[in-house]
């Protein structure tokens, strides 16, 4: 007979593991979501609260009445629609320009085996790291010399440029994944390089163009320092600058409600973009940062 070993019922590891992991995961996912959404939701809530509720202490989390007065005020007292249109115009035009200039460059760097290609790529990569504060002084001079102050070009040109490096890196990585045969077939068919780019290569990389375009649009919509410096006339301002200046306009009472409303309106287009294009944004960001 073997010495009798006391039968101890150990808590089996699987019993606990199976129960706890999904619960923990659920809690963390919930926390991540709260963390990411709370500030925006709070701003949204503020924007539809009455002034009385906004300044009530302790804070009101579930207001009884809602109001659109802050939004109405934005459009009544300021050219807010104009800000939106300015932002949209500058962002869209610079995005299109950026794709138009960046894709051919990316193609040349992906396929045409130029001498000094590595050097150019290295420089393009480094340039993405430049904070805009290093550029605004020199650009201010150019804007003054060319008389571009309060002109859309003063934003369109720099926005196109600041998005070029990302466009070049992302599009290049997409071009490199294209099957080579397609371009060879086009050459044999008689397309020259430019025709091939426009009629064969770009139509087959539309998803990549969309990805890059979304990123460029986001950056252009969000830009602050150039817009702050080069656009001083009220009718030329973009949303981020205009919203940031709402508070500074009055000395007496800070208009929290309209600020919140402006924030909501200014972020709304981007929230929608992210909702619809989350995958593309992630794909583009990682292609631009990692593959280069």
């Amino acid at each position: 007979m073997a010495p009798s070993t006391p039968v101890v019922t150990k808590p089996s590891p699987t019993q606990e593991g199976v129960n706890w992991k999904p619960v923990l995961l659920g809690i963390t996912v919930f926390l991540v979501a709260i963390f990411s959404l709370a500030p925006i939701l709070w701003q949204l809530l503020t924007s539809i609260k009455t002034n009385a509720d906004i300044s009530r202490i302790p804070n009101v989390y579930f207001p009884r009445e809602f109001t659109l007065e802050h939004y109405i005020q934005l459009f009544d007292r300021r050219p807010f629609l104009r800000y939106v249109l300015n932002s949209a115009f500058v962002a869209i035009v610079s995005t299109l320009l950026c794709l138009g200039l960046g894709s051919p460059a990316a193609y040349a760097l992906a396929r045409l085996r130029l001498k000094g290609e590595q050097l150019i790529l290295g420089l393009v990569l480094i340039v993405t790291l430049f904070p805009y504060i290093l550029l605004f002084l020199g650009l201010l001079e150019i804007v003054q010399i060319l008389g571009l102050g309060n002109n859309y070009l003063a934003l369109i040109i720099p926005y196109t440029a600041i998005n070029l490096p990302l466009t070049i890196l992302v599009m290049r990585s997409f071009f490199q994944q294209l099957p080579r045969d397609l371009e060879d077939a086009a050459k044999v068919d008689g397309y020259n390089t430019v025709q091939m780019l426009w009629q064969i290569v770009l139509p087959t990389t539309i998803p990549a163009l969309v990805t890059t375009g979304i990123l460029a649009f986001i950056f252009a919509w969000n830009e602050f320092i150039f817009a702050l410096t080069f656009m001083t006339r009220e009718t030329m301002k973009t949303i981020p600058v205009a919203a940031a200046q709402i508070g500074g306009a009055t000395l007496f009472e800070i208009p929290y409600g309209p600020i919140a409303a402006a924030t909501v309106l200014g972020t709304l287009p981007l929230v929608l973009l992210v909702l619809f294009f989350q995958r593309k944004i992630v794909q583009g960001l990682t292609a631009g940062a990692v593959k280069g």
């Binding site: 045969d181 397609l182 060879d184 077939a185 050459k187 044999v188 008689g190 020259n192 064969i200 087959t204």
Partner: peptide, 20 residues
């Protein structure tokens, strides 16, 4: 001469049809 000026035609292993 470039490929397009040689009046040749080529069939590729992957067929290389223009997808769009």
């Amino acid at each position: 001469r470039s490929a397009g000026d040689r009046n040749i035609a080529m069939v590729f292993q992957s067929y290389a049809l223009y997808p769009h």
